[in-house]
Structures are given as C-alpha cells and as structure tokens.
Design a binder for these strands. Structure first.
Lengths: 193, 193
DNA sequence: TTTTTTGTTGATTGACGAGTCAATAAACTT
DNA sequence: AAGTTTATTGACTCGTCAATCAACAAAAAA
C-alpha cells in the first residue's frame, strides 16, 4: 500500500541512518544494504532515491552542516556583544547535537573523501569559509587587524579538538572542548603586539 | 636470479610505496597491486612479505612515526633551554619530511582506521602519548602546573593544522603552520592566572 | 649433488557489494 | 476504465580485489 509523498520521509531516514551506520562501523565501508536496513527499507529503494552511495553520504553531510549552520545562526542572534558572539560560535560547534561520536566520525570520513571527490572538497570549503567568516566578523571588534589570524588558529583548534574526540572512549565532552577553545581565545586576545 | 637478503629492501620499498599511493589516491582504497607495482614487484610478493594489506599500512604508519620520533629526539638534543625544546618539537612536527601532502593524507586515513582497528588505535595512542609527554616535560619549567593543559591544546592545534593542510592546494607550508603554533604558545605562556 | 631455504610471479579463487531490472501494487488522473 | 505516476523489492549482473596456490629459479646447506 504505497502512500504518496514518501520521498522526503525516506530520504530523511536514509540520511540519518547513514550517519549512524558510518559512526557505528567507523568508515565509509558501510554497505548500502546496512544503511537501508537501518532506515527500514530495501537497498534498491535507497538507490532509487539517491542515485549512488556517494550521493547519499554527501546528502548526509549537507544535513549535518545545515543543522550546524542553523544552530550557529540561532546562537548568534541571541548573543550579546562581540565576545558573546565568538563564544556562541564555539558553543554551537561543540553542542550536544554536533559533537557526537557518530557525527564526528562522519566528519572524519568526509575529510578523507574531500581528498578525492571534488564535490566533497567544495562542500568542505564552503563550510570552512562560513566558519572563518563568522569568526572574523565576531573577532574584528575585539582584535582588529589580528582577527583573521586568530580566526585561522581557532578554526584549526576546533578541527583538532574534533579529531581528538575520535580517540577518546566514553561519552563526548563538549564542555571541556569549549573550555580549551575559550582559553585559546583569551590567550590570543591578551597578546598585544 | 634471486638475490638473498631481499626482505628488508622489499619491505622498505612497499612501505614507502604505500604512503605515496595513499597520498595519490587519497584513501585506503588503493589496491595492493597498485602499491606493489609502484614498489616494483608483484602483488603476490607484497602479500608474501606482509600478510595482509592492513599489515602493510600499519607498517607504513609505524615507519612514519619512527622517522618523526627520530627527528624530534634529534631536535630536542640540539635545543637550548626549555622554550627552545618546545620550539624544537613544533618545528619537527612541521618539518619538510613529515608535513608532506602524502604523509598528511596517510595520517588522515590512519585516524579513520583507528576507529575500527584496535592496533591502529593503540599505535595512535602511543604516538599521542609521546607527543604529550614531550610537550609537558618541555613546558613544565615555563608554565608549571599549567603545562598539561597547554600541552593538550597545543597537541590539538597541531592535529588541526595537519587536517587543514589536506584541503589546501599548492605545496605544504610548514613554516606558516609553525608560526601559528608558536603564536599560540606565546599567547598561552603570557596568560598569568 | 641432493635438499632446503629464499625469492618471485601468473593464474585462480572466492567473496562481496554497488547498481540495475523486471515485476507488483496502490494511488491519482482523465 | 484505462492510463500514468509513485512506491517498493527480490533477484540478478558485473566488476573488483584480497588472498592463495602452484610452479619455477637460484643460492646455501647438507
């Protein structure tokens, strides 16, 4: 009994299942069947909605980035003052929704994919550009001409903290990561030269 | 015309070819045949010396780590004063030999592998532990009780700078990366609290 | 000189998995 | 009622690749 309008529902389920399965297996070597099974459908249907496994994963990462972007915008709107804005970005980056084991694992695999798949590289560049731009704007009133270089090191530090999360056992500790990033920020801001 | 004592030569060639091929392709989806071909032998011989593809890659990463470790020890021996030691570690981390496109690509894939292969996870933990320990020892005279936390953020920053290198086009710029890390160090050291 | 050890490869096996296809069915349209 | 669009899947194709094997060659040991 095929109900109509299934497409968005199925796609959404597949996108979520993709993240979960990649997180579970720890690599892109998940079969489409595994993903489809977790999403409650046949692999043929998954191929019907997304042309290929790669499309599926790219859609999943677009989804992750969209959620992150929305969270940043929300936090930014509620933030007060320049420093509040930087803190808002950092907090969003390590929020419970984004800083999850499976999501971090997906990011890591996405990074690998960006080395060989142009579309992944493009997406990653867009994401990095947005993060950088957000940081620079927020830092400008605090650091003036040094805003770009601080944004660069903060960005790298964020990526590094994500990376380190992968190795840890136990639940993700976003608060600790935020603390490290904030201290870096304070330290950089206290540098007068 | 089998010359004897080939084993170390073959293994060495395979280890190097593994890094190059992974760097070229950008993922672990390199075939053993490709690696063997680049190393100038048949895939069967590669399997003869290393039992499996995974063993080959793990040996390659052990090799990378060994070189890195030797470089750090050398730089540490020649360094003067505590700050000189921290600088030596950072410079070694981004030296021309270690901070190369293909090597960075290999690291990235190694990180992914560490999520699912215990031996890779173990190796990575050993490496991180050594780096951390080196940093803490060097930082102790400079930062006292704050040495561990500074070592942690410096370590994450180093990883992040490696990660960012992957996306860049053009040749690797180790000097720029060292500069970012050094500025972070200065900033952290100037924080008195 | 026979035997063992070491080096070497072409050919083959065996498994696995992405993507396709044909078929079935229920809804909507005309 | 006939035709079209959307949903859905089991079965199948087709390519790829890690790993193994059988066989051959040369050096070293016995």
């Amino acid at each position: 009994m095929p109900k109509l309008g299934m497409e968005p529902i199925r796609k959404d389920a597949l996108v979520k299942a993709t993240i979960v399965e990649i997180g579970r297996v720890g690599s892109l070597d998940v079969t489409v069947s595994q993903i489809a099974k977790r999403a409650g459908m046949s692999s043929a249907l998954a191929h019907h909605y997304f042309g290929s496994k790669e499309d599926m994963f790219l859609a999943a990462m677009r989804h992750v980035m969209t959620l992150y972007g929305a969270e940043v915008r929300g936090a930014l709107a509620a933030a007060e003052g320049p420093e509040g804005r930087v803190r808002a970005i950092l907090r969003a980056s390590f929020s419970a929704g984004n800083f999850r084991r499976d999501v971090v694992g997906a990011w890591l695999n996405f990074w690998v994919l960006a080395q060989s798949v142009p579309e992944a590289k493009r997406l990653l560049a867009v994401y990095q550009g947005r993060l950088r731009s957000n940081l620079v704007v927020a830092l400008r009133p605090l650091a003036g001409a040094r805003a770009p270089e601080i944004a660069a090191s903060l960005g790298a530090l964020i990526d590094g903290l994500y990376l380190r999360e992968v190795l840890k056992s136990g639940p993700a500790d976003g608060a600790a990561a935020v603390a490290v990033a904030l201290r870096h920020l304070d330290a950089e801001l206290s540098l007068k030269s």
